[in-house]
């Protein structure tokens, strides 16, 4: 088994994610035409773009849920498209993924949801240690009192936080957020944005955040990329893009 440190040593220039000339098409329609992206350690990259443009496809390619047609995706310096099943699973334990729909397991309690990745990956077998980690993860998102509730009993914001806690329990080095504030009220959205920043500072994690929420983008981003027609149309900091004269880029920031 390749050691985690060995994989990290392969990483060039402190980039944890390196994507080059990525292409992906569905049913003859090319969604991603030429995607190039590098994410540094502990950097938050926000991707903006219209719905159905391929933002979620891009992050699903990073974790190997969707395989690209062409191009290279390196995570921790290792090519995802050439990883075998075991390597893919090892990589996935170091990459967290927050799904748009939260994807909490309906048939399990909050505690079981959080224990699931720990038990499955056999990272820890000691029950006391697992309990401590579950409490720690729930404390991070401020929801220790819902530990024995079912996901259906929780509000949208709570489910999002539990989803974050389930991801954090494995202490990932990269977190991919698929529209983390969609469907939440402004106050909860702000709390989730704060939480994303807290996670970045506390765990030194790198993140790719896909969002339509400009406030979330403003609060969380170190860098913003705008995806349009299968390529990154514009890139820069929030303030750079806000003052950009391009009509398409302007159209994104018109409400702020």
């Amino acid at each position: 088994m390749e050691n985690n440190k060995d994989i990290l040593n392969n990483t060039n220039n402190n980039y944890v994610i390196e994507i080059e000339h990525l292409q992906k098409s569905f049913d003859g329609r090319m969604i991603l035409k030429d995607i190039n992206l590098k994410v540094k350690k502990s950097e938050n990259v926000v991707i903006l773009g219209k719905s159905g443009i391929g933002k979620s496809v891009l992050i699903k390619c990073i974790v190997g849920l969707i395989f690209p047609d062409k191009g290279s995706i390196k995570v921790f310096g290792k090519e995802v498209t050439q990883m075998n099943h075991k390597e893919l699973n090892e990589m996935r334990t170091r990459v967290g993924f927050i799904f748009q729909s939260n994807a909490l397991y309906d048939s399990m309690t909050v505690r079981e949801n959080l224990e699931f990745p720990l038990r499955r990956n056999k990272i820890i077998n000691d029950k006391k240690e697992i309990d401590n980690l579950v409490y720690e993860a729930l404390e991070n998102v401020g929801l220790t009192d819902v530990i024995d509730k079912m996901p259906a009993e929780l509000s949208g914001g709570m489910r999002k936080r539990i989803s974050l806690a389930r991801t954090l329990i494995l202490k990932p080095e990269i977190i991919l957020y698929d529209e983390p504030t969609t469907g939440l009220d402004p106050l909860t959205s702000r709390e989730i944005s704060k939480l994303i920043n807290t996670i970045q500072n506390k765990y030194n994690a790198s993140s790719i955040i896909i969002t339509h929420d400009l406030e979330c983008a403003k609060r969380t981003s170190n860098r913003i990329l705008i995806l349009q027609d299968g390529i990154f149309y514009a890139k820069g900091s929030f303030d750079d893009l806000k003052t950009n004269n391009d009509p398409f880029v302007k159209s994104f920031f018109i409400t702020v």
Binding site: R92, T93, F97, F99, Q100, A103, Y105, F116, P117
Partner: peptide
Amino acid sequence: SMRVTEQIDAMEVSGTNPIKY
């Protein structure tokens, strides 16, 4: 319902083989 609510994807991403489990 697990498929459409991305629970199967979540399982795969957390290092669990959904076919097996």
